[in-house]
């Protein structure tokens, strides 16, 4: 008997988010297809980052944070009491807007993730994982001869790929990216986009971007947020030529 596989890896069900008295997200229902890129777009302050950070519980430490509804990861609510946060974040990784590096070597920056998640391996095994991650992040050729150099000497685009290498070294299933290209020039951006195309063979990617062109280029699905409300979600190839909602239409054509 063949088991029918669920095409969705994460399902947000009726999710509302509050910080103190203000409601940042309102009753969002949104599911994410496995091995696809889903883009979250919307004006600044529309709640994209807040929502994204809920998907691996990065908001937990925010004062007075409250979430209603459920976020199912492989059909299990990640907001259950039993959820092990370290293991959750091993499976759902995050790449931030500002490329960050620890004041360590390039090598250590990638291996750091393994140590953080208690996945430390023997020296040789660790070397292999680091090399592999750097290769998959399309950075290997540029850094293989200087793995012991300080990471901060890398360019912005290289740093962002290093952050991606760090996140894929621990073999997550989902990678969350919050405006990963907003600090990068067009060439570095193109490299990341090419990389995203590659990565989706293995990972599910959820990408917050303020560039609609980027969303159109790299994603299969696009979701549009406005003031904490999910306005419209659909196949990207129709979303940008023929959105159904008037608010989406106005947003993507740059109308006030």
């Amino acid at each position: 008997m063949r088991v029918k596989e669920d095409p969705f890896i994460i399902c947000a069900k009726d999710v509302s988010v509050f910080i103190g008295k203000s409601q940042l997200i309102q009753n969002v229902h949104l599911s994410f297809l496995k091995n696809k890129v889903t883009a979250l777009i919307g004006a600044s302050g529309s709640g994209k980052s807040t929502f994204l950070r809920c998907l691996n519980r990065l908001n937990d430490d925010v004062d007075d944070f409250k979430l209603e509804g459920e976020i199912l990861f492989h059909e299990k609510n990640i907001y259950d009491n039993q959820t092990d946060l370290v293991s959750l974040r091993t499976k759902i990784g995050m790449v931030f807007q500002k490329p960050t590096a620890f004041p360590k070597s390039i090598y250590e920056n990638v291996a750091y993730g393994l140590r953080l998640h208690n996945l430390t391996k023997s020296g040789k095994e660790c070397d292999e994982i680091v090399e592999n991650a750097l290769m998959r992040a399309s950075l290997w050729e540029e850094v293989k001869d200087r793995l012991d150099d300080e990471a901060y000497r890398l360019s912005g685009g290289q740093l962002q790929r290093l952050a991606i290498a760090r996140s894929i070294a621990i073999e997550p299933e989902v990678i969350l990216m919050d405006e990963p290209c907003s600090a990068l020039d067009p060439i570095a951006t193109a490299r990341i986009e090419e990389l995203i195309d590659d990565l989706k063979q293995k990972f599910t990617i959820i990408l917050v971007t303020h560039s609609m062109q980027q969303a159109a280029r790299v994603s299969e699905r696009t979701a549009f947020f406005n003031k904490g409300i999910l306005i419209e979600e659909g196949a990207s190839n129709e979303f940008f030529t023929n959105p159904q909602n008037e608010l989406t239409q106005r947003y993507i054509t740059g109308r006030g």
Binding site: M212, Q213, A216, F240, Q249, I252, T253
Partner: peptide, 9 residues
């Protein structure tokens, strides 16, 4: 303009 939506059409 890199138009989208109705502008693109």
């Amino acid at each position: 303009r890199q138009p989208l939506g109705e502008d693109l059409r």
